[in-house]
Design a binder for these strands. Structure first.
Lengths: 115, 115
DNA sequence: GCAATATGCTACAAAAAATGTAGCGATGCA
DNA sequence: TGCATCGCTACATTTTTTGTAGCATATTGC
């Protein structure tokens, strides 16, 4: 498990109110985590296949290495992503979360047509 | 339909690459929209019941009125949320999206226990 | 071996987004 | 008519995200 440090977003630093939610509702805490730029994109792309840092960057609209690295640290800290010999991959937990996210893919397709 | 204006986040302003995704994948465009602070929280809370601006603010960890208003404009602009006589509510489309989001609630509960 | 290239990341400055707070106009109701 | 509440905007401050440069460590070609 990686160490927490000052590169984490404020709510994920040690001592922050449990996982960022003032109301204490788990769903709001989760939204706080994955509702950040690139978090869901990272999960989505890692689910399709393990990725190196570079691959991941390319598949995430060229997000800057700075955020990408921050997001990866956060996701690793909560046990959704892990670092492997040749890059990053989802943990069992991460894969579980992805399964809940997956239905959004189909929906998104029909949604963009309405715009 | 509300008018686009400079209070929108950069990718949602007129002329921006279709809905913010460089890769053009619908899912990334969706993530770009809902992966912003409070977007999912707003959808989640509106799904439970229609809300006034004030209620919504309270149910979203007291998000500042500034962002709340920006998010609501964005969500209205893409037809997920609508303004009613006494507040805000989800459109049919919004409700559809919520259904895809709903399974996250249960998952979040068990997830917080692992932290 | 050893330069050339690629990869994973950090530093740091600049831009953009979120926050907090004050306050204004409209509506409700006493 | 006076006072409270609501929905929202203005604006200054703080946090995040971005962009770019660059450095250390593999990896490749020769």
């Amino acid at each position: 498990m990686p160490e927490f440090d000052e590169t984490f977003s404020a709510q994920f630093r040690p001592g922050s109110p449990v996982k960022g939610s003032k109301t204490g509702e788990p769903i709001m805490a989760l939204f706080d985590l994955i509702g950040r730029r690139w978090s869901m994109g990272i999960l989505w792309n890692l689910a399709k296949q393990d990725r190196t840092f570079r691959d991941l960057q390319a598949s995430c609209d060229s997000a800057s290495p700075t955020v990408l690295n921050t997001r990866l640290k956060e996701l690793r800290a909560v046990g959704l992503v892990e670092k492997t010999a040749n890059g990053y991959s989802l943990t069992t937990n991460g894969r579980e979360l992805f399964e809940k996210l997956e239905p959004l893919g189909e929906w998104a397709k029909s949604w963009t047509k309405t715009l």
